[in-house]
């Protein structure tokens, strides 16, 4: 059962404020909104973390591999010519979504647990979340590549776990 679904404290304004804080502190970067066409095709990479308990939902970050590599490099302050191993790239975007998720959770009343971040690529993409109710969505510009940050809620999170 969702807690206060009508007056969910999670909205675009809160999520954008969380994203601003994470970008500045973790990535040393300013948030640039995406003014290009809305990315409709599923992104190559999705990092997600679930929230379960009084409020059930999912925080998801989707982007192209190139954007994920850029985000990881910014977090690790790696040089432009430094190639990061894929596990570090996935670890980094997983942590971004984890920190966003933890801060989103901070806005919720009641007892809700944050899961561990998961990064999905290729065929094991989780598309079932489409059935869930979108709560917030923003698209950011990472050096010319779109990055979406979305929050979904569902009555029963089990449906969207793979």
């Amino acid at each position: 059962m969702s807690l206060l679904p009508e007056t969910s404290p999670i909205d675009d304004e809160l999520v954008r404020a969380v994203v601003d804080q994470v970008w500045e502190s973790l990535l040393g970067a300013e948030v640039v909104p995406w003014y290009g066409e809305d990315p409709v095709a599923p992104p190559a990479l999705q990092a997600q973390v679930t929230l379960t308990g009084d409020w059930n939902g999912l925080v998801r970050l989707g982007c192209a591999e190139g954007a994920a590599e850029g985000i990881a490099a910014a977090m690790l302050m790696a040089g432009a010519d430094e190639e990061l191993p894929p596990e570090d790239v996935h670890d980094a975007v997983g942590e971004v979504v984890n920190v966003v998720g933890g801060n989103v959770k901070g806005a919720l009343l009641g007892d809700t647990a944050l899961g561990l971040p998961r990064v999905l690529t290729g065929p094991d993409h989780d598309t079932r979340t489409v059935a869930a109710v979108p709560v917030s969505r923003c698209v950011l510009d990472w050096h010319g590549l779109p990055v979406t940050v979305e929050v979904f809620t569902h009555e029963n999170t089990k449906e969207c776990r793979s």
């Binding site: 809160l14 969380v18 500045e24 502190s25 801060n103 901070g106």
Partner: peptide, 15 residues
Amino acid sequence: SQLEVNRGLPATTLV
């Protein structure tokens, strides 16, 4: 600034 509000202000308090 963004940097200043990042020092100890949870996002919920910020908004």
